[in-house]
Design a protein around this nucleic acid. Structure first.
Lengths: 230, 230
DNA sequence: CATGCACATATTGTATACAGTACTTCTTTC
DNA sequence: GAAAGAAGTACTGTATACAATATGTGCATG
C-alpha cells in the first residue's frame, strides 16, 4: 500500500514510447478508437500515465505503419479501412503469404512442423467446443508459425503489419464464414503440401486461403458503410 | 544580409521532423553514415539546426523502416546490410515488383505508357553519352512509374522502402554489371509485355530483371566484408 | 605496475515550458 | 437578426530542462 502508489510494478522494463505504441495500436485495431478519431497527445499521455514526448514518438511509428494519418492542419487521426484498401492489403497479403509458404516449404524445421500439427489438433477441438476466441488465437498462431518458418525477417515484419491492419475484421472473417471448419481444412491441406515439399502447391493453397475472406470482408464493409455498424 | 541570418528562406514549409528524417535517411543510404555509426541526437540536431525533439521523432520512423536499430543500452546506430539481407530484400522485391507489374498491365494509363517510352529513349541516349548518373536516375524513374501504375498505395510504399534500402548499391548494381544495355533491354521487354497485356510474362521478366543484380551485389558484399570497402 | 574506486563527462529517456495557430464563442454593429 | 470581429481555448510543433545511466579518466593503493 505505502511506497508504490503508481502501477509500475511488473511492466517497468519497457520503454514508455513502446508501451504507448502498443496501447494505442491495440485500441485502434481492437476497435476502441474508431476511424476518424483524432489522437489528442495530452489525452493519450494522461491515459498512459506519461508525458507527450513518448506519445509523439509512438505516433511516428503508427503513422509509418499506416494506422493513422496526418491531419491537414496538424495532429493525427485514425485511418478508416476502405473497401479499396481491403482489396490492396489482402491482395498483398495473399502474394506475400504465398511467398512465405513457398520459402517455408524448404526451410521449415521439424519442431515447427510439429507445432503446426498441434495447432491443427487444437483447432479441431475448438470446433467441437465452439470456442471461437481460442480458435481465432490458434488461427493467428498457425499463420505466425508459418511466417516464421520462411526465415525471412523482413517478410515476417511485413506480414505481421498487414495482419494487424486487418485485425479489426478478425471476427467477421471467421464468424461470417459460417463454415469455420473450412479454415481448418485449408490449414490441413497447406500443412500436407508443405510436408510433401510442394512449394508451388502450398503457395497456391495459401493464396486461396487468404482470398477466401477478402470478398466476405469487402461485402461486409460495403454494408457497414451504409449501416455504420463499425 | 541583414534580416535573415538563418537559412530558412525557401524550405520552410516542411515539418522539422521530416527534414531531419529526409536528411538522415539520405546520409545513410548515400553512404555518408557508415554502418555501425551511432546516431547522437544532439549532434544531428545541431547539424539540422534544430532541437532533439524532431530528431527523436525522425529516428522512430527510421527504425520502423529498418535503416537503424536500437542499441542494447539506449540510442540507435546505422544498420549494416548483410549478405543474408540482400537475399531477403531482393527476393521480396522481386516478388513485389513482379506483382506490381502484373497489376500494372491492366491498370496502366496511356500517359504512363508514354512516359515509359520516353524514359527508355533517354536511357538509350545515356548509353551513348556514357552518362551514368543520369542513367541511374532514369532507371529509378522507370521503376517508379511502374510501381505507381499498379495503383496500389501500400505496394508502392513497400517497394520504395525496399528500393531505398538497397540504394547504397545503386552504383555497383549498374556499374559492375558492365553491360549496362542489358538493363535497357530488360526495360524494353517489360514494356512490350505490358503493351501486349501479358501479365504473367511481364511478372516473369520483372523477377528476372530484379534478380539480375542480386548475385552481383551479394558477391560484392562478400568481397567487401573482407576488404571493408563499404 | 595492475587494480579498483571515485569523479567527471556524455548521452539517453522523460517531462515540462513556450510560441504559434486554428477553432469557438461571444459580442458588437449595421 | 446576420455578419464581422475580438477574446478565449485547445492543440500542435519545437525547445529546453532534468534525472538516470553508462562511459571514460585519473588517482590512489596494494
Amino acid at each position: 500500500m505505502a511506497g508504490a502508489e503508481k502501477s509500475q510494478e511488473a511492466k517497468k522494463r519497457k520503454l514508455l514510447r513502446e508501451h504507448v505504441y502498443t496501447g494505442v495500436k491495440s485500441a485502434i485495431i481492437g476497435g476502441d478508437f474508431q476511424p476518424g478519431k483524432r489522437l489528442i497527445e495530452e489525452r493519450l499521455a494522461a491515459d498512459m500515465a506519461t508525458s507527450r514526448t513518448p506519445v509523439r514518438e509512438a505516433i511516428q511509428k503508427l503513422e509509418k505503419e499506416g494506422l493513422i494519418f496526418r491531419l491537414p492542419r496538424g495532429g493525427f487521426a485514425v485511418k478508416a479501412v476502405t473497401e479499396d484498401e481491403v482489396e490492396e492489403i489482402l491482395g498483398l497479403r495473399s502474394i506475400l503469404e504465398g511467398y512465405a509458404a513457398y520459402l517455408a516449404t524448404s526451410r521449415i524445421t521439424d519442431a515447427e512442423l510439429k507445432r503446426l500439427d498441434e495447432i491443427i489438433a487444437r483447432e479441431d477441438a475448438c470446433l467441437k467446443n465452439l470456442n471461437v476466441d481460442e480458435f481465432i488465437r490458434l488461427d493467428g498462431e498457425f499463420h505466425d508459425v508459418l511466417y516464421r518458418a520462411a526465415k525471412n525477417a523482413r517478410l515476417y515484419g511485413l506480414l505481421n503489419d498487414l495482419r494487424d491492419y486487418m485485425y479489426r475484421y478478425r471476427v467477421i472473417i471467421l464468424h461470417y464464414q459460417r463454415k469455420l471448419h473450412l479454415a481448418v481444412q485449408d490449414h490441413k491441406e497447406m500443412l500436407a503440401s508443405i510436408k510433401s515439399k510442394s512449394p508451388r502447391q502450398v503457395e497456391r493453397l495459401v493464396r486461396k486461403h487468404v482470398s477466401r475472406g477478402k470478398e466476405i470482408i469487402k461485402k461486409k464493409i460495403k454494408q457497414g458503410e451504409q449501416a455504420r455498424v463499425w
